[in-house]
Design a protein around this nucleic acid. Structure first.
Lengths: 137, 137
DNA sequence: CTTCCTGCAAAGAGTTTGCATCAAA
DNA sequence: TTTGATGCAAACTCTTTGCAGGAAG
């Protein structure tokens, strides 16, 4: 599922920290924050500093390999591969579900026509209550 | 244009700071941050502290009168009335254009069906290049 | 009067940055 | 070697909080 092979952008050196961060992002099922990447690596015995993570996330975002986003009622940035940037969040349990085949493209034409923008990207966040939480009342 | 009359939620006192913040949000054409509200009020001769602004924005968000969001490459939260929460941002000049009649509703049914979520809200951010910047090349 | 609200200053949290050291190429 | 990358600690920015004084009801 979405296991595309990411590689370090041209012009940047190949370091074990960089590769490790990319692997975590590839394996992640939804946007995660710097701290989560840090803990994930720590649990896998990989020692890295938070600043290195932030510096690499900034680079990867600038290079377009990663998308940064913020979630409702959260003050920290999350990062994900572009195909995992649109999601549903359960307001009760916090579960995050990625929106595959985002139907946004259908609206794109309309937006271009109405506003004249040349659209390069988008990010959609949807909140609601997941099926399990609906049952729990 | 979107000049709905907002009032202080029941259970909260009517103070001049609160009313001033609401007025700024009503007049705003797109999501703005705490600092911008502060400056806007200062320019109108209204003295208020940033913490009061933050405290009220938190309250208004909790009460559902205001929606909090973050924009690409920005580290501070923005706040807007619900009808101004979906927007287009020009990557070059930063211009923000509100998406009226957000076509999201068409797509809501599909999401409910596929994921079983009971959807309560959404926020859409679109980036691109505005017509003026396209001309400038 | 009573309770809520505000302002101020200090504290917090997340993120960024300077600098010396380390490692990729 | 040369130059980019990392780690650490300090710095920064945005936001939150404690507390005393002030205003709303």
């Amino acid at each position: 599922m979405g296991e595309q092979k990411l590689s370090i952008p041209k012009g940047y050196r190949k370091t074990k920290q960089r590769e490790a961060i990319l692997k975590v992002l590839e394996r992640a099922e939804y946007p995660i924050n710097a701290e989560q990447i840090f803990m994930e690596l720590k649990n896998n015995g990989i020692d890295i500093s938070l600043s290195t993570i932030y510096r690499n996330l900034e680079m990867l975002t600038k290079e377009g390999l990663v998308v940064k986003s913020y979630m409702m009622n959260e003050d920290k940035a999350r990062f994900a591969l572009p195909d995992k940037k649109n999601y549903l969040v359960c307001e009760k349990c916090g579960k995050i579900v990625i929106i595959d085949n985002c139907p946004f493209d259908k609206f794109k034409e309309e937006l271009i026509e109405v506003h004249g923008f040349d659209i390069t990207g988008h990010s959609i966040e949807v909140y609601g209550v997941c099926p399990e939480c609906q049952k729990k009342g």
